[in-house]
């Protein structure tokens, strides 16, 4: 369920047009005019709330994800950051008890609307998961899976696309001689890069990453982080991470979540050096969480 995009007096969560000053509410003091209001947003949330059954996982949050930047979502576990991420391509549809209110726009269209073509949405908003999850197929077939679903493409076009995707994910040199080998034979870090290659092969606009490095060793993590900053030139990236150093290293903007509320969302440098809120400061300095 969602509230209309334009404010209606009857709505419990009046949506405020982006950029306008919003009156602070109890428990939502963090909301303030966004300094980057003039920038183009890929995804914007307004008065967005989410529930699992009767448990409210997210409390009326509003934020913007600017185009071609890396936005990091940080916060202690259970704070709702993954839930928020999974709404951005409606992966929460798989959980029958999950529902949401408010608006969550992709380029100005509410992606929570019932008419949204979820399949098309997910093609445009790709996702990389916590644990690498390659299909038990060959490396080639893993990459070609998405393109084959969405386009009918000639053999040579597909070969080329697979190569470009693997190159973009910095995996081509390692696997070019064994494209027909099972993807399960790759190392964890390689598998995760394969998953990234698989996600970008369908030509998404936004790439969601749910703790993409938490199951990897430090060297693979470094490789993925390097990849993320390269990809950010082409894609809008939203990354959920437990690791604050990682957020500081890879992201342009950081949003801090705590107990289902968005406490603060700002440029990464500001969040880590001069946060507005005590809670944020405590968290980024490691005093809790």
């Amino acid at each position: 369920m969602s509230t209309p995009a334009s404010p209606t007096p009857a709505s419990p969560h009046p949506a405020v047009p982006f950029g306008q000053l919003r009156k602070p509410e109890a428990g939502n003091e963090a909301l303030r005019p966004d300094p980057n209001a003039g920038r183009r947003s890929a995804i914007s949330a307004k008065a967005f709330s989410s529930w699992y059954g009767s448990f409210q996982a997210l409390h009326s949050l509003s934020m913007e994800v600017p185009v071609n930047e890396v936005t990091a979502l940080i916060g202690p576990s259970g704070c709702g950051k993954s839930t928020f991420l999974r709404w951005m391509n409606r992966m929460n549809d798989m959980i029958s008890s999950a529902r949401a209110e408010g608006t969550l726009d992709l380029h100005g269209t509410n992606l929570l609307a019932p008419s949204t073509d979820v399949v098309e949405l997910r093609r445009r908003v790709g996702m990389v998961f916590q644990k690498p999850n390659p299909f038990p197929k060959s490396i080639y077939d893993n990459i070609a899976y998405g393109p084959r679903l969405h386009r009918s493409m000639g053999r040579s076009d597909l070969d080329d696309l697979v190569e470009q995707a693997l190159k973009a994910a910095a995996l081509w040199n390692e696997v070019k001689d064994r494209l027909r080998a099972s993807a399960l034979g790759l190392s964890g870090g390689q598998q995760q890069r394969l998953c990234i290659a698989r996600a970008i092969a369908v030509g998404p606009e936004v790439l969601l990453m749910d703790e993409p490095c938490s199951a990897l060793d430090p060297r693979s993590t470094a490789a993925i982080e390097e990849l993320i900053s390269q990809l950010s030139e082409q894609y809008t990236i939203v990354i959920v991470t437990h690791n604050m150093q990682q957020a500081a290293r890879v992201s342009d903007r950081t949003a801090f979540f705590y107990e289902g509320r968005l406490v603060e969302c700002d440029e990464t440098e500001r969040i880590f050096t001069r946060p507005k809120h005590k809670q944020t400061e405590d968290y980024v300095t490691g005093r809790f969480g």
Binding site: N89, M91, M94, V119, E120, L121, R122, R123, R124, G126, M127, F129, K131, N133, P134, F135, P136, Y145, G146, L149, H150, C195, R198, A199, V202
Partner: peptide, 25 residues
Amino acid sequence: PNSLREASLALGSTKWQTVWNVTLP
């Protein structure tokens, strides 16, 4: 494992495409 289903759905496949290409095999 659910992770396989999620991987397929997140690439924009329908439920049946997921079943036919990933879960059923």
